[in-house]
Amino acid sequence: MAETSFKSGFVSIVGKPNVGKSSLMNKLMGENLSIITAKAQTTRHRIMGILNGDDYQLVYSDTPGILEPKYSLHEAMMTYVKVSLQDADAILLVVALEDKFEPELFERFLRMQTPIFLVINKIDRAKGSQVLDKGTYWKECIPNIQEILPVSAKTGENVDQLLPKLLALMPEHPPFFPKDEYTDRTERFFASEIIREKIFLNYEQEIPYSTEVSIQSFKEADDIIRISATIYVERDSQKGIIIGKGASLIKKVGIEARQDMEVFFNKKVFLETHVKVADNWRKQAFKLKQFGYLE
């Protein structure tokens, strides 16, 4: 009896900020690996989701939204996008209904040999022939698009069509990761991301973008995980805003983060948070290295 061939490969999920890439990855994985907020530039790292089947392993990469870098953090984020595209056996280029072709962001895709699926997201909001018109528009802008797939990452509509199409393109290859793993990131990383998500949800204007979360300790016992986290901001004035009157806001963030962590880790969590200032950390290479953005 012939042995079943095994397929394994990398799929890069890319697009501008706020097009729903992270929602799509979570739907494809059936796990909430990437944090999601309505604010742009929520994703700062490359997060891999490892989907294992009997005869395949697909490694999805959720990447930061493509943008023109304004400072060192942005440059580091765009490096994650570049590496993800270089690794990819297939590309999911995610666009929203209102997106337009911007040469400085999308011209790179015209030169790529890797198969590109254009994923038109948020079709649950579409009216009339909007989806069809957008598909025609993007095919004219990027002629090397292999196929156009309209989906709604929010409702899950058509998302199940992606897997068979991607598997058809994957090379025969042994799995890249152990088959019981579903991400390349550590538990400490996800703890920090959950806290960062709550900051994005609870604060306005520049505060979420000026904030970084570092896990100082992560101690797991049989019945509880004890986590100590430091929230860094860029200026003293932001520290007061993060803490809030009578520490009300930082308490709210802590409670919401702890509740999500208990669901994510399936265990009781004790979380303590501290707030510190790291002056202009987004623009300083040594601080970006300290926070894990640079090698």
Results as ranks from 00 to 15, higher is better:
61 S>W: 11
58 L>Y: 07
258 R>P: 00
185 R>L: 03
173 H>K: 15
129 S>G: 12
99 D>S: 03
26 N>G: 07
106 F>P: 08
153 A>K: 03
137 Y>L: 02
16 K>F: 06
23 S>G: 11
253 V>L: 03
270 F>M: 09
14 V>E: 00
100 K>G: 15
180 D>R: 11
78 M>E: 12
192 S>A: 11
10 F>N: 13
263 V>I: 15
12 S>R: 04
25 M>V: 08
184 D>I: 04
186 T>M: 06
123 I>Q: 03
244 G>S: 04
184 D>N: 15
8 S>T: 09
207 I>N: 04
295 E>C: 10
230 T>Y: 07
260 D>C: 10
231 I>W: 10
214 S>W: 12
48 M>I: 12
111 R>F: 14
13 I>K: 04
39 K>E: 09
97 L>I: 08
37 T>R: 07
98 E>G: 06
142 I>C: 00
164 P>D: 07
288 L>M: 06
37 T>M: 09
78 M>L: 05
278 A>K: 15
115 P>R: 08
63 T>E: 03
196 R>V: 03
44 R>A: 04
49 G>F: 00
35 I>L: 09
244 G>T: 05
241 I>F: 02
74 H>T: 00
225 I>S: 02
196 R>T: 05
136 T>E: 14
253 V>C: 09
275 V>N: 06
174 P>L: 09
75 E>N: 12
15 G>P: 06
108 R>Q: 14
4 T>S: 15
144 N>R: 10
193 E>H: 08
258 R>M: 03
63 T>V: 06
126 A>V: 01
164 P>L: 07
32 N>H: 13
79 T>W: 12
173 H>F: 05
266 N>L: 10
81 V>S: 06
17 P>L: 01
126 A>W: 01
55 D>G: 10
140 E>K: 15
288 L>V: 04
148 I>M: 01
23 S>P: 09
128 G>F: 04
33 L>I: 08
47 I>D: 08
23 S>A: 14
45 H>N: 15
291 F>Q: 03
164 P>G: 06
37 T>V: 05
55 D>C: 00
253 V>T: 13
210 S>T: 13
251 K>C: 09
76 A>V: 07
58 L>R: 01
158 N>F: 02
187 E>L: 13
193 E>G: 07
70 K>R: 13
23 S>K: 09
8 S>R: 01
30 G>Y: 04
50 I>M: 10
279 D>A: 14
116 I>H: 01
83 V>Q: 14
281 W>D: 09
242 I>R: 08
184 D>W: 04
60 Y>R: 04
242 I>D: 08
51 L>Q: 12
221 A>F: 14
35 I>Y: 10
68 E>D: 13
289 K>L: 02
146 Q>M: 15
